[in-house]
Design a protein around this nucleic acid. Structure first.
Lengths: 199, 199
DNA sequence: CCACTGATAGACAGTTCTGTCTATCTGCTA
DNA sequence: TAGCAGATAGACAGAACTGTCTATCAGTGG
């Protein structure tokens, strides 16, 4: 008899296996995990439903269709990434933020379930340029480029526009090469970013 | 009445619509084109058969299964790429070959049907590490790394191993970023490679 | 003339996937 | 108490995909 039974709602959930959040959250959590780990085309709706413990009608009432679920997955990755990046560089001087950002990329590449960039995966898997998830991914690339430009200016780069382009290349290279060869490539990219911005 | 009718074999092929090569070649040509353009999971066997004008039994007798057809597609891309690269850098001094290689990457990124690296696409789409196509792709990455190491040594880089790692990052970054943003990113990568090797 | 090889055409089974729909259940609120 | 909103469970249709198998045809060599 746990004393928490005083909580009038949701005390049943303590007994059920794992319904920690709303159905929408459960579905999005599961889809996000499976889509990143195995790919959006390899994972069917039924897999998501089974692992989320949800019903088909819930998925379709919340997300409309699978393509929109994929777009929501990309949207969530973007929201998380921006928050993580901004928190990671917040408390250091703007001139050092670009390099600091590559520290975060190294950490990411070292995490055991790292499998490359989920946005890039979606673009590769969904070749239709009108797919809803691609517009979301394109938006994030613009945000990224704007950050690099801002940080390159703050670092006093002689040609901030060129430096921003180079930083985009280094970021994509760090992520893609680490996906194949391991996190050392992300360190290589960080080193080049340091060289780039030390002039 | 063309005089070539003296050719005793294959004069019928001049009349038929387009059977330019053996069935195996036709199948591989078609699969290669479709897999790169739309993705290996998005393109079904029937699409390949219809566009190649071949029968299902031909495909399965020549390639065994779809996974092996995908592996053959990757193998062909590798063979073509190596020949193209070696021809492109053959007649210039070894010290300049790394930079010359990035000229080729820029040309590639500028071609209208460029859609990123087919090897990387296959790795993204086929998350199973035991897929036959992945071993083929891994082999090409080792070849690539060996070339970069060789070229970095020839260019007199103070730390050839570190330079080779950096060149891998720049190559992957050039291809991935150009896939999203256009060929300017490949030029950005070439510029960084020049900076890297000018020390 | 016959046998063999390689290719075509396509039916077929078996699976998987998306999306719809019906029936049921539960908790909340009027 | 009645009704409503949201969730579950699962049948179902329709399509697509892989892989197998049979029947047929054309060319070639003995």
């Amino acid at each position: 008899m746990p004393p928490k039974s005083r909580q009038k709602t949701k005390n049943i959930q303590r007994i059920e296996p794992a319904p920690p959040a709303s159905v929408r959250e459960r579905l999005l959590d599961t889809a996000d995990r499976l889509f990143y780990r195995e790919g959006v085309r390899a994972v069917g709706i039924d897999r998501v439903l089974a692992e989320a413990g949800a019903a088909k009608a819930s998925l379709y009432s919340h997300f409309g269709c699978k393509d929109d679920l994929v777009a929501a997955h990309v949207e969530r990755r973007i929201t998380d990434a921006r928050a993580r990046i901004e928190a990671y560089v917040a408390d250091i001087p703007p001139a050092e933020r670009a390099l600091r950002f590559f520290d975060l990329v190294v950490e990411w590449a070292k995490s055991p379930d790292f499998r490359g960039c989920p946005l890039h995966h979606v673009v590769v898997e969904l070749s239709d340029p009108k797919h809803p998830a691609r517009a979301v991914a394109a938006k994030q690339r613009q945000w990224m480029h704007a950050r690099f430009l801002e940080w390159a200016r703050a670092a006093g780069a002689p040609n901030p526009a060129a430096a921003a382009g180079a930083l985009v290349v280094l970021f994509d290279g760090a992520v893609t090469a680490s996906e194949h060869d391991g996190p050392q490539r992300a360190r290589d990219a960080r080193w080049m970013a340091g060289q780039l911005l030390s002039h």
